[in-house]
Each structure stands twice: as structure tokens, then as C-alpha cells.
Amino acid sequence: MTDPTTKATPFARCDHVDHYLFAVQPDIPLLDALEHASVYLSCAEALAHQAPTATRPEHIVSLRWASQQMLGTARSLVQASIDGLHAAQPGDDA
């Protein structure tokens, strides 16, 4: 059995069409995907903490938006990893 890898996982749905802007690519080693997810979560947390103390309203909005985008990316990396683990289970045809 080979080491489990990510499954393709689209994310960041476009507002006006039924498409996604980005996707976690398949066959990424899970450790790599989860390390990236951890970095994205740390950055999102840092931005979320900075947003309330921003002095300009447009900075608050930008910091919150960036934090949300990082959270969505991290969530997709984790989901792609979970899906890859499930697919690697013996007897799973996914």
C-alpha cells in the first residue's frame, strides 16, 4: 500500500457562476498538505487578531477577507487530506 495522498478538492466558489476558482490538487502527500493547512490557519489567526486594531476601515475589511480566504484554503487542504485517507482504506473504492 502506498502512502495516502490528497484527493482533488475544489474551493472558492465564484459568486455568479457554478465554478470554483481554486482546487487542492490530487496526489499531494498528506503531511505536506496538512503542514500547509497549519500555516494557513496560523496566518488567518494572526490576521483575525489584527483586524480589530486596524486604524482604517478598509484595512479591517481587507484583513477579515484575507483571514476568511486563508481559512477556506486550510479547510480545503484538511478535507482533501481526509478524503485521501478514506480512499486509502482497504476495501474503499472511492
Rank of each mutant, 00 (worst) to 15 (best):
S67M: 09
W65E: 14
D92A: 07
G84K: 11
T6M: 05
T5N: 05
M1N: 07
S67F: 00
S81V: 12
S42K: 06
G84V: 13
S67Q: 06
C43E: 14
Y40L: 10
L71T: 13
L30Y: 15
E58T: 07
P26W: 04
P10W: 15
A80F: 05
A44T: 02
H59K: 06
V24D: 00
T6I: 09
M70Q: 02
K7G: 11
Q79R: 03
E35Q: 10
H19Y: 00
W65A: 12
F22A: 15
S62K: 02
F11C: 02
Q25M: 08
M1D: 07
D92I: 12
T5D: 02
A66N: 02
G72N: 11
P10R: 15
Y20D: 02
M1S: 10
F22T: 13
T53S: 10
D3L: 03
H36I: 13
P4L: 01
A12R: 07
D83F: 09
D92W: 05
A54D: 05
T2N: 02
Q68P: 00
I28N: 03
M1P: 12
Q25R: 07
V39A: 05
L85R: 03
S42L: 04
T73V: 12
A23R: 01
R13K: 14
D15N: 06
D18Y: 00
T9G: 06
A51W: 00
E58G: 06
A8E: 07
A51C: 04
T53Q: 04
L30F: 15
A87P: 08
H16P: 06
A88W: 11
T6W: 00
L21S: 10
A80Q: 09
A12L: 00
A23K: 05
R64N: 14
A87F: 15
D83L: 06
S67V: 03
F22Q: 10
D83H: 05
A12V: 02
A87I: 15
T55G: 04
D27L: 11
A44P: 01
F11H: 07
T2Y: 09
E58V: 01
D18P: 01
V17S: 03
T55H: 09
P90S: 06
P26Y: 07
M1T: 10
T2P: 04
A44E: 02
D93H: 08
S76V: 10
F11I: 04
A66T: 10
L71N: 03
V78N: 09
S62D: 13
L41V: 14
H86V: 15
E45S: 10
S38E: 12
A44M: 00
I60S: 12
D15V: 12
A80D: 07
T9Y: 08
T55D: 13
A37P: 01
L31F: 13
